[in-house]
Nucleic acid binder design. Sequence first.
DNA 1: TTGACTTATGACTATAAAGTCATTATAATA
DNA 2: TATTATAATGACTTTATAGTCATAAGTCAA
Lengths: 204, 204
Amino acid sequence: MTEEETGKINKFDCILASARKLIEQEGFSSFTMDKLANNAGVAKGTIYLYFKDKNDVLENVLKSGFQTMFSRMTDKVEKKETPEEKIKTLIYENLLYIGENKYFFKTVFLDEMHVVFLKKTSQESYNLRRRKYAVFISEIIIKGIDEGIFKNLLDPLKAGFYLISLIKTNAIYNFRNNKVEFNEDLIKSEAAEIFDIFIDGIKN
Amino acid sequence: MTEEETGKINKFDCILASARKLIEQEGFSSFTMDKLANNAGVAKGTIYLYFKDKNDVLENVLKSGFQTMFSRMTDKVEKKETPEEKIKTLIYENLLYIGENKYFFKTVFLDEMHVVFLKKTSQESYNLRRRKYAVFISEIIIKGIDEGIFKNLLDPLKAGFYLISLIKTNAIYNFRNNKVEFNEDLIKSEAAEIFDIFIDGIKN
DNA sequence: TTGACTTATGACTATAAAGTCATTATAATA
DNA sequence: TATTATAATGACTTTATAGTCATAAGTCAA
């Protein structure tokens, strides 16, 4: 991708655009400086005139992918009056931004975790396990919908994934805040919190 | 870690236990076969008598980390009657399992995505960006709590992370199911779905 | 005890990819 | 145009680590 092709004026932006494109196409794990040089139409040494090292390239790609999102979102959200409207707007704007940068976010989101270190076939079995879990939850939800307890409006399988993500987020939050000591009471209250938000939402 | 130390009878389990321990301690990115051999107290070649390659080791570590979880959970859940009780039990059992295998899940959950490819300092700035976003959401939620619209019972910052995870999960779900073509109507309905579940929950 | 078979070893090879730097090309200036 | 300064090059060096294999140690039946 030369300067004319990308429409970028300077080499920094040109290399960055190539890096992003490569990452979107092939993911983080197969991203190499040789490929980047080749793809950007410059010599390998040239990259090092504009970026400190590979980490610097990756950091800039991620930065550029996320940077406009936050400012655009806050602009839109702050125009709204009520907390509910603000949250509604935030969700919409966020999904819109993801849609506009779909190839970027597809890689960033799907190139998840350790999965990156596994071969394709192992990744598939890993994802199947997760899916099996979501299916199990979806069956419970379907039963609840049939009984009229749960809303009929949403894809039960997706709801299963939603619940899994809430549980995972809870764990990550506690890990990050060094609440590593799990006692039974703590787990009970955390579980009740997740249950409450999933079943009833945050509304009073 | 020798056989006596791990309490495992055979080399396969001994090597596997060492691998898991190493991964728990240092993460996936710095896990090498040399370290494993050293840590397991066997020669490098010995590992290849019990495992096909590195991928095979990683796959087995992940498998062993997740395998009992699902069967244990289904057992407990199936004893419950109502869908609500089932979901409540599922969340509790899942958190309990994570707690029991905290070092394993800490690594698996925190060693997230592309972040693995970044240097420590870049990872921190990445996490700070995410946190900034969660703080922004938490401020909206706090306002809602003050106004009496939202429940007072939960940590607003955690709620922010919950919402972010719902949005991300929605995107991943659509990416996985190849719904890559985002049109405005689709985004609106997806946004409404997330809003509804976050505000009101899945209960009718 | 011996010889056949199984298991283990670790020095070695192969390879991929990051990062360097002497050389060359291009641009700016006098 | 000649001279200097700046930018670009890509062959080369370095490093890390996965995977191999000739050799050695251990086991066990006859």
